[in-house]
């Protein structure tokens, strides 16, 4: 059964966005890491992962229905 997540990619990661990021299909139990691998996002750029607004690990499993935000390291000023 396919579930969907609402995926938000920020800054340099935007270019990896799938066609409908707000309804991105995932297999329940899949991890954020496998999502970024599938999208071709370099692991060292996926530094900050938020699931439903809470900082999370790349290994966190997804069940569908989550809002997933991925932010690269930014340091400019």
């Amino acid at each position: 059964m396919t579930a969907y997540i609402d995926l938000k990619l920020y800054a340099t990661l935007k270019k990896f966005s799938p066609p409908s990021p707000e309804k991105y299909p995932v297999e329940p139990g899949t991890t954020v890491l496998s999502v970024i691998e599938k999208l071709g996002i370099p692991k060292n750029e996926a530094k900050l992962v938020f699931i439903d607004g809470i900082i999370s690990e790349l290994t966190t499993p997804l069940h569908g229905g989550e809002r997933v935000g991925i932010f690269p390291p930014v340091g400019g000023g």
Binding site: T12, K47, G75, G76
Partner: peptide
């Protein structure tokens, strides 16, 4: 440290190098 973790020790800059400000 919650935001940058060990990144902060390894690299002084982030993706602003390619995106500017």
């Amino acid at each position: 440290t919650l935001i940058y973790g060990e990144q902060a020790r390894q690299s002084s800059t982030g993706v602003e190098k390619s995106l500017g400000c």
